[in-house]
Design a binder for these strands. Structure first.
Lengths: 123, 123
DNA sequence: TTTCAACCTGGAGTGCGCTCCAGGTCAAGC
DNA sequence: GCTTGACCTGGAGCGCACTCCAGGTTGAAA
């Protein structure tokens, strides 16, 4: 049972983002106090961990919504969820490969500058 | 000497993006035919390769502009350029680490689903 | 000579993912 | 009881990086 500030701190999402995620239906069933304030459970927090993983790997929000919705529909969507994650993972793999390649280019370019700047103080 | 379509094909940027890059001053000094059409040189193309590397690694356009501007200023900005690239490379490294970690999480989650779905057809 | 696809310009529009705001409510500590 | 900071809502606004459009021009092939 955590207040919004604590959920934000633990998940790394801002308060506004948490409210936004609830508004668009990504996060649903968040409890409230009698006064109308949000109360986050450990369950909510583990959803946030999942969202963080998906977001960090570049999944669009619309697809996260679809994943969350499938989960809410129950056990019979397990295969669909797995499929969705596998397709995403494949995209992430490509992204990772590209990033590594371009990182190598970048490092190469930096080495080139070092050859100019660094003076290579005579062998 | 390449027409816009060819520059787009080779660089992977759209025609609109090439025009946009020129408009904001990222790409400068692109030649023209007497009729006003763009003519891209090998030099322009190698700039585009650099921009693709920087963009693919998440550098904001404003910073690419700064880099391009430094280059145009001449040899005395070499150290600044190197610095800029090094700082960027450091960020990319972090990004790469995060992406790898989250990718591992994702794969773990998929394995979890496989444990449910896949039935593990008895050892 | 005509055609027509590729190109030009300035400027408006788009999609994403938040982020900010005004104006109000709640509740813990003094 | 009062203060004060955390929280609430609906809705507007923002920053980025393009992308699209209208209306016009160019130039190579048939």
């Amino acid at each position: 049972m955590y207040p919004p500030s604590e959920a934000a701190r633990r998940s790394g999402f801002s308060l506004d983002t948490l409210r936004y995620y609830e508004k668009i239906g990504l996060l649903s069933g968040v409890g409230r106090t009698s006064g109308g304030r949000r109360v986050f459970t450990d369950d909510d927090l583990s959803w946030l961990v999942v969202f963080r993983c998906l977001r960090d790997t570049g999944m669009p929000i619309a697809e996260m919504c679809r994943y969350a919705e499938l989960s809410r529909e129950g056990e019979h969507t397990v295969a669909a969820r797995q499929e969705l994650l596998e397709q995403h993972a494949a995209r992430v793999e490509e992204q990772l490969t590209l990033l590594q390649r371009q990182y190598a280019h970048l490092r190469e370019k930096i080495r080139f500058y070092q050859g100019i700047t660094g003076a290579t103080p005579v062998p």
